[in-house]
Design a protein around this nucleic acid. Structure first.
Lengths: 357, 357
DNA sequence: CAAAGCTATGATAGCGCTGTCATAGGTTGT
DNA sequence: ACAACCTATGACAGCGCTATCATAGCTTTG
């Protein structure tokens, strides 16, 4: 607005300019710039920059003048330009499989909140979208030059690892553990979860096990160690059904229906997520099966509804918010040049015994 | 990698440089640039740029040479620089209240997928975070110069509207209707929903109504028109409980518990979301109340689980994915300079009668 | 075969900001 | 009183990319 009158861009105006003049720019975007604010405030552009980014270097009066000029012009800083000049974008990227899974959402929310509070913005990338693999996604994200990046899981292509190293930014992998992380790591052991659930259910006396498992990488790990542990007890040939991601209550119901249709009569069903478990619960109830007397149901993640279904769901509690919080703390410390404390964090898990198993 | 040997930056190196030389840059980021690729490929930087962004302008052989140079160097374009130069960022921002509400997620997912498919990246802003209001959030987002922006709801401060107009980018408001949108609009009438539900339940014979309502702007509109409609039937003084956001099953259970504790004996409970309705269902069941014989329960949104609870939830179906899809289509058309079709879309809603009411 | 047009590539000059160094003016210490 | 230092501000030169115009080498056309 402060500018529109003085510099009307466009081809026409250019033609009318005498060729001797240094030619007014054809490319200006027409939006208010630092320079415009500076002119109005009667200071140099760099002073405006400082007023915004290092106000302690500017006298209170100058600061006030600049503030007014900013308000008057409606100036919005251009972080593309700022980031290009300073190599700091105030952007942190996080890659998660999907928004459709409440597990990751509960991690992302505190991550976002802490980063936002520290002046960063979170850019979410969804790797579960079938037509782009993580590698492509990562390339796209790195082209925005984030200051740091958060990844879900620990399996990344060599090329991805290479690119991440080349980017020279803090990286946090989360939701799993590995002896060879790219950089920092916040997660828990899915193997131990599988084993712990097997122990728990076996010692409660269940013997006819079934699994309803989604096509998630980490769910598979839990399943494998669950089966191994049961094998250790001398139990073999368990009934398992696979359901596609994203997991829904519907898939849980259908999974349970399929189990029963196939003639299985499990006395305990372990699901790869509470959502699936919830579906199993509903299917059992709709068929008049009593939970847990006729069939026990065990979920995973302890989502917000797990304690409030009827009957309440036994599950594996994972402090999902803590994953996000720790990841944010590690990143913010490192971005601030401070020591980050331990950068390999096992947040553990806990078997929660409620009514359903 | 291709560069690190030839240009060791840093203070030391600078001091050793004779003062007559044009001084090697102190500021280079050390990462591979277009220029590096160009040098390796034996072409000019602009040709590399074209190979990436307008390959049809480059001969196949040149393209191939450039491709190889890119692969060899591991070049990742810098979209900050590109965006600054071209005023196109390939970034679309969307503001939603929270990730914790599956309603919006179901809209965001197709929005993200379509935008990603068209080469855009989606930047999510969460306005529900208490310490930042939408206005601040918007400012932060606009400083990244997105090519377009999607907003949830139609109530925005004058300053926000001003800024959005000044940004001169396509804007889509969604999830509500208004006669005075900022630009484009994709939503449905929450007033009509409230009235339709009141009609539906009244005509099914229910008379002792209760409401469990979250502190959501649009939920309030639905509640108001629901109450108005019932008032039209001569019913007054309904039992209502407010629950805080984000809505959870727990809040639904507690809401129902509170209603009963207060001595209310509703024969129908209308909830501002399926999640709350689900909690109401669980609470009723845990007290031995039959649904819908003793109490009917009605949700809102038709979330994925609504058809699969037991008993299945009667609710208001909203095609949330269609909101995202239409928003994406409108934006992509306008960003591509094509006619966008109608830019005020009422996607409607539908009362779904299942078992719970 | 000259004029005109087309195609592939290049040179130049920014986009809007900040790192870096320089400088004017003030304060302190002896 | 003067060096030594500090503080607030400014000038300048890029950050890495693309819009724009220019140009060399073709093909087309009457």
């Amino acid at each position: 607005m402060a500018r529109s009158a003085s510099s009307p861009p466009g081809r026409k105006a250019l033609r009318e300019t005498p060729p001797s003049e240094p030619r007014t720019s054809t490319r200006s975007t027409g939006s208010v710039t630092l320079g415009d604010v500076a002119k109005l405030a009667g200071v140099s552009p760099i002073t405006v920059s400082r007023a915004l980014n290092h106000p302690e270097l500017v006298t209170p009066e100058t600061l006030e003048t600049v503030r007014q000029a900013i308000a008057e012009t409606g100036y919005v800083p251009n972080l593309l330009a700022g980031g290009l000049a300073s190599s700091r974008t105030k952007l942190v990227a996080a890659i998660i499989p999907t928004l459709g899974n409440a597990m990751f959402i509960d991690t992302i929310q505190p991550l976002n909140d802490l980063l936002t509070g520290a002046g960063y913005q979170l850019l979410l990338g969804l790797s579960g979208f079938p037509t782009t693999d993580e590698q492509e996604l990562l390339k796209g994200i790195l082209s925005r030059r984030p200051d740091a990046i958060v990844l879900t899981g620990v399996n990344h292509s060599d090329e991805s690892r290479q690119r991440l190293k080349a980017a020279k930014i803090p990286v946090v992998e989360m939701w799993d553990l590995t002896p060879a992380p790219i950089d920092s790591l916040v997660g828990f052991s899915h193997e131990k979860v599988g084993k712990a659930v097997a122990d728990f259910l076996f010692h409660k006396g269940y013997r006819r096990f079934a699994l309803v498992c989604a096509g998630d990488e980490r769910a598979r790990i839990r399943r494998r160690s669950f089966l191994e542990a049961l094998g250790g007890f001398g139990l073999e040939s368990l009934a398992t059904v696979d359901v596609p991601t994203p997991t829904t209550v519907r898939m849980g119901r259908e999974g349970m229906a399929r189990l029963l249709a196939d003639g299985h009569r499990p006395d305990a069903v372990f699901c790869s997520s509470d959502v699936l478990a919830h579906g199993v619960l509903a299917e059992a109830q709709s068929r008049g099966l009593r939970v847990p007397e006729d069939v026990a149901v065990m979920g995973f993640a302890d989502l917000d509804f797990a304690a409030y279904t009827f009957p309440a769901l036994s599950t594996v509690h994972v402090d999902r918010a803590a994953i996000g919080t720790r990841a944010a703390e590690i990143l913010l410390a490192r971005l601030g040049g401070k020591p980050a404390g331990p950068t390999m964090v096992d947040i553990g898990f806990e078997i929660i015994e409620r009514a359903s198993a």
